[in-house]
Design a binder for these strands. Structure first.
Length: 681
DNA sequence: ATCGTCATTTGT
DNA sequence: CAAATGACGATC
């Protein structure tokens, strides 16, 4: 009987002797009695291989080889990893099927995650296996033992008893326009989609905890970085205890895999983590929260470059889980979804908006300040010294280093590297000038335009700012938080000065007494498309670190008080700012109003690829324009295609077709394509 | 991707 | 006329 099941090796062998010997040494095993065919996704990065392949299941793997399992298969002559998608009774493949070589562990990939990965791949013109690499963490065999039974299957576990009734968190939503509607829907088990702006005086983690409780647990909270994970997890664990799992990019393989399996087996049902956790296999997911979704670290850098907000949106569509994009600011992408009516706004009302720290600018009669033109005007000094009487003071600066940008004293042209033409900067007080692109040290500066040897500072960095403040307040400790000295996550409540680059501000125990936002004008002037958006986002993030309420602190902003970004801060109105920015993008037809494909590569190859895509006549093509950046080889250029959102999947489809046909080239002539990359133009 | 096959080019 | 480089095409 077993003989009948043998499909055997295909040897059209001429020598019966050899055949006999082999058969004796290794008798051919029968195939699985039921569904002997396994459809798999192979783990090879090639657009042309982004489809399912059939393999046969030997009898001994019949129980183990379940859908969702990682397996090892011989494919195109090599052993590669793959995921089983499903088992079937027969194959449509005309040829003979190769056998699965080995089964690597239990079913880690759920059908929901697979389907979502497919949707993400389609949206970004990538292939499923690329997305699966991000969705399913690396296997760790030793950690696995505790989660599988003797038969190799996952041991399903229920969360530590407690309840069908998740503990309530005491949050008063009356200060939020749209808040009642949101929590009503969650309370009633209906799907909700909301763009939530959290007031500076409220705790983000607490509000999120309340939403999770109302949604009945079973939630994923995606945050930008590890420090945020700690902040959120602490609060969530205080409410939900053992049900919370952390999943972050900086966990080691065993810890990460264990966390993942705890989620997969149902042992933990609330996940807080960095971008990849948006794929976490929470069973019966009810709520997805993306915190501060304007932060670029929520975008994967490797292909296909998905963004956690978009993945969450796709997942909420396919799973019926609620979706909340929450933060101190609002991303333009979120504003677009709101304008479209796909999500509902939830925002602090007028009274709540007035309840935060006081914002001071050069307006309000302070324009006559004799020191108004200096980098740190008098009112900012006053804010610092007054603040120091009660506690810590935050000084936010635009750039890291000592003197990050210099210019020739004579002709005023920017100091540039003699080798590569990159901008020169002085990183520490003692160090010579160094090129920011190629790193070459240049002790003897000579202006490349006029030959002059004298220079002046154009920008002042965190190190120099700290030095100046230390000189002015000799008895006060000055702490620096930046990429060079290390990013601090928390400081205590004693009076000291914290100098931080934008985005690297530590939280202060009890809140800062005062804050000063420096270099706003320079940052707003360097405006590429999203520069202003990023600054506004970071300002509002920093604003929330300052004491509010009755003893509220002050925030001194030195940028042009008439700039709309500064006005947004003064009126604590990030929503209005966002609406205006969205209107601007609508006028110019730039992302996120349009779907975008950015094609980058060597000269010529870029346009050749665009031709291969057979783009619609109606789509807008910008460039190709030369790429001037530190890493890029000279001659690299970029072409940007803008299509209406409604054409998004057609654009991605055409790009994918071209990729599958190999139009992206190989070796030095290779082009890369990104759909909706975080940085365009 | 990577490997094989077939075709075209190059070398002595 | 044989080795060498290259370009499709299939991969189960």
């Amino acid at each position: 009987m077993e003989q009948l099941a043998i499909t055997g090796h295909d040897e059209p062998s001429t020598e019966g002797r050899r055949k006999k010997r082999r058969a004796k040494a290794k008798p051919i095993e029968a195939l699985a009695p039921e569904n002997p065919v396994a459809e798999v996704v192979v783990d090879i990065n090639a657009a042309a291989l982004d489809r399912l392949f059939d393999f046969s299941v030997p009898e001994r793997f019949n129980d183990l080889a379940q859908p969702g399992c990682r397996v090892r298969v011989r494919f195109a002559g090599r052993l590669v990893n793959a995921f089983i998608v499903r088992r079937r009774s027969e194959s449509a493949h005309p040829g003979k099927l190769t056998r699965i070589d080995r089964v690597l562990g239990p079913a880690v990939l759920t059908s929901e995650v697979l389907e979502m990965s497919r949707a993400v791949a389609d949206r970004y013109a990538g292939s499923v296996n690329e997305v699966l690499r991000d969705a399913v963490p690396a296997r760790h065999v030793r950690s696995e033992a505790a989660f599988v039974d003797a038969d190799g299957r996952l041991r399903e576990r229920r969360p530590p008893k407690e309840d069908s009734h998740a503990p309530r968190v005491e949050v008063d939503w009356s200060g939020y326009v749209g808040g009642k509607e949101l929590v009503d829907r969650l309370d009633n088990g209906k799907q909700a989609r909301a763009g939530l702006v959290v007031a500076p005086q409220d705790s983000g983690p607490t509000l999120v905890a309340d939403l999770i409780a109302r949604a009945g647990g079973r939630a994923i909270v995606v945050v930008p970085d590890g420090a945020d994970v700690d902040r959120f997890a602490q609060v969530l664990e205080s409410h939900f205890g053992e049900r919370v799992a952390r999943l972050t990019g900086d966990q080691k393989t065993p810890e990460r895999y264990r966390s993942f399996l705890q989620i997969r087996t149902g042992q933990r049902s609330i996940v807080v983590g960095t971008r990849n956790c948006v794929f976490a296999p929470v069973t019966d997911l009810r709520l997805l929260v993306v915190w501060d979704d304007g932060d670029d670290s929520l975008a994967e850098t490797r292909a296909p470059g998905w963004h956690a907000r978009e993945v969450a949106a796709l997942r909420s569509l396919s799973s019926n889980a609620s979706l909340v994009l929450a933060g101190r600011a609002r991303s333009i992408e979120c504003a677009r979804l709101l304008a479209q009516g796909w999500m509902h706004p939830v925002e602090p009302d007028r009274a709540k908006r007035h309840g935060c720290a006081r914002i001071l600018t050069l307006a309000d009669g302070r324009a006559d300040d004799p020191a108004a033109g200096s980098r740190i005007p008098r009112f900012a000094w006053e804010a610092i010294s007054q603040g120091l009487r009660g506690g810590p003071v935050l000084v936010q600066v635009g750039r890291v280093g000592y003197l990050p940008a210099l210019a020739c004293l004579d002709c005023g042209s920017i100091a540039r590297c003699s080798v590569c033409g990159g901008p020169l900067g002085q990183h520490t007080r003692a160090q010579a000038l160094q090129c920011r692109w190629c790193g070459k040290l240049q002790p003897d500066f000579a202006c490349s335009t006029c030959g002059g040897g004298d220079k002046r500072a154009v920008r002042i960095g965190s190190a120099r700012t700290a030095e100046e403040l230390q000189a002015a307040f000799p008895n006060i400790p000055v702490i620096v938080s930046d990429s060079v000295n290390g990013v601090k996550t928390e400081v205590d409540a004693r009076p000291h000065i914290v100098v931080a680059t934008v985005g690297a501000e530590p939280t202060a125990d009890g809140g800062y007494q005062a804050a000063v936002f420096l270099d706003g004008d320079a940052q707003l002037a360097g405006a590429h498309l999203r520069g202003e958006e990023q600054l506004v986002r970071r300002w509002f993030n920093a604003l929330s670190l300052v004491k509010s309420g009755i003893e509220s602190g002050v925030v001194a902003v030195t940028a042009d008080p008439h700039h709309r970004a500064v006005q947004a801060l003064v009126r604590n109105d990030v929503v209005g700012w966002c609406e205006r920015e969205l209107a601007d993008r609508e006028e110019t037809g730039l992302p996120p109003i349009t779907r975008c494909a950015a094609i980058t590569g060597p000269r010529g190859a870029v346009t050749a690829f665009a031709d291969a895509c057979e783009l619609d006549e109606s789509w807008r093509v910008l460039g190709p324009s030369p790429l001037q950046a530190p890493g890029s080889r000279s001659g690299a250029e970029r072409l940007v295609v803008l299509a209406p959102i409604a054409d998004g999947s057609r654009l991605a489809g055409k790009v994918k077709m071209a990729l599958a046909a190999g139009a992206d080239g190989s070796g030095d002539n290779r082009v890369t394509v990104r759909i909706d990359p975080p940085a365009v133009l």
